[in-house]
Design a protein around this nucleic acid. Sequence first.
DNA 1: ATCTCTTGAGAGAGCGCTCTCTCACATACC
DNA 2: GGTATGTGAGAGAGCGCTCTCTCAAGAGAT
Lengths: 331, 331
Amino acid sequence: MRRPTLEAVAARAGVSRATASRVVNGQTTVAPHIRDAVQRAIDELGYVPNSAARSLVTQRTDSIALVVSEPGTRVFSEDPMFSTAIRSASVALEAVNKQVVLMLASSAKSHARVERYIAGGHVDGVMLISMHGADPLPAALSRLRVPVVSYGRPAVPVDIPYVDNDNVGGAEIGVRHLVETGRRRIATIAGPQDMIGGQDRLAGYRNVLRDSDLRSIVAIGDFTRESGAVAMRQLLRDDPDLDAVFVANDLMAVGALQSLRQSGRRVPDDVAVVGFDDIEAAKYTEPPLTTLRHPVAEQATAMVGLLLGLFEGGPAEPVIMPTELVIRESA
Amino acid sequence: MRRPTLEAVAARAGVSRATASRVVNGQTTVAPHIRDAVQRAIDELGYVPNSAARSLVTQRTDSIALVVSEPGTRVFSEDPMFSTAIRSASVALEAVNKQVVLMLASSAKSHARVERYIAGGHVDGVMLISMHGADPLPAALSRLRVPVVSYGRPAVPVDIPYVDNDNVGGAEIGVRHLVETGRRRIATIAGPQDMIGGQDRLAGYRNVLRDSDLRSIVAIGDFTRESGAVAMRQLLRDDPDLDAVFVANDLMAVGALQSLRQSGRRVPDDVAVVGFDDIEAAKYTEPPLTTLRHPVAEQATAMVGLLLGLFEGGPAEPVIMPTELVIRESA
DNA sequence: ATCTCTTGAGAGAGCGCTCTCTCACATACC
DNA sequence: GGTATGTGAGAGAGCGCTCTCTCAAGAGAT
């Protein structure tokens, strides 16, 4: 016993398939009593349209690919930015009845897979989350003439609308806060330099130090807690007298705090720490973390809006969200 | 200019559509030189099969719904268990060329949406993650005769194979560790009692205390950091002399540690703390958290195996994964 | 040389739906 | 009363694919 078809509904209601289709798709050119009869048949049979058949003829799938170009397995699982963005985007898409197809693209092999899948017309549009600079995906997808939007500015200049926060400006605010509270040896733990976020936040740090005639002290991490801990130890070796550190994301800041504790430094008395992202965990560190907040959920929602706009044929401008300093106890 | 069809490939290769289809689907009953000709046509045209047309006739979609019945918005974003499970399941499914359709089911409204979608035959199978006890979804889906597996034992006794860890046993190990290290006033911060994990871990705690003739001191949280902090404050008010607390997940343990710090308690000297899950953050708390580890990634992979087994018609037994005590500094 | 059997390839139906085209009928206008 | 104008409903094509059925050609058996 298979699922009922539109044919069955039409037969039961005593109308043609075309009329049944009209009712299913909410067209208004159906007389009320006929509409009711069809509706009753639908309810009685438990009819649900076959999506494959529908998208075969409409050439739409009502699905959106959410492609996560994850930098590494650890970050995806641990960094709440990802889940928050995925969650918000999902909710926004569900609100307009689009399905979310989640694709993880970590290796070159999976890149090919994603590309093939998108090319296969399985989805109406693509949302790209957080790719590395060398990521060939944005360019490849943009070539496929599929509507694509990106969470975070693509590293390669490619014609894809995106939503991002003001990474440079945010970093400047954070570092300036350290300068203004009297810190003089301000180091930074930067993010990976093949990621736009990593580059921009480092640029913001450098901008402020240059203006203040302070020396820059840089260690590079990869946005994981572990790398933050390692980088902090290295910074302390390089310059034991540093009195502040701007960390490019909160996850690394958590690791940095641990290293500072292990080295006997008091935060913020000996060393002030400023993070970036304002993840939930930032409230629970010892001491609670001063950090830069940006509206991840709103960014994801805006990204959905951008994509929907693309469907309507509208030209889509990049959206930049503001960044705000949240002062807690670490700086 | 639209995408090339099988028709076009066949024409270019000078064969029939049927033969082209045979090559695309890797059937062996095609002479080598014809197969090569078709393959060349495919490459030249950049042909990709239309999935809608294919699944219309095969009645398969090669997609799996990953339904996350999230307890609350915060947990999904913050608890790395979710992202780890989602990630591992995705990877395992991609390995067998199945697509992952991510669906969040938080409200009753979205439950209906999910049910309709599944009923619509959009997917070949369903993986359910972490539902509440009152969740009607497992029963509803099982009624739809769609293959369903669950991450975590369903609260309602329903015929769905699942993968879980030994929550009761794990909790017992954790609490026994506290007893054996001389703690006498052992409280617990339990998880939500409408979740199986919440219930079972509390049951494990109670089992050990009963055997040891110790009094149980219980506060209930909802698996968020915040609720852990609140619950800990409450426990300290109720029984200022408690010397240990077993917390039903690490996220709440992080909150509990903060409350303990704020109340001036030293950990583990005054109060020992044992968590559950061994999330990455557990290594970075002050002090690092003693907790119970279970293999989330492996569980997710096993769940995929379970579902694939269901497709083959195999009867599927529940899989229970072991839990292991990781001793750090908090207990 | 005739018949059977295997192998490779084509013809064509049909999966379930949408949507254009067509037409019957009712209403309005001169 | 005849023509123009709507309006509601049906007929039927066709979306791109798979898969069964059919058949031609060659190999092997008698």
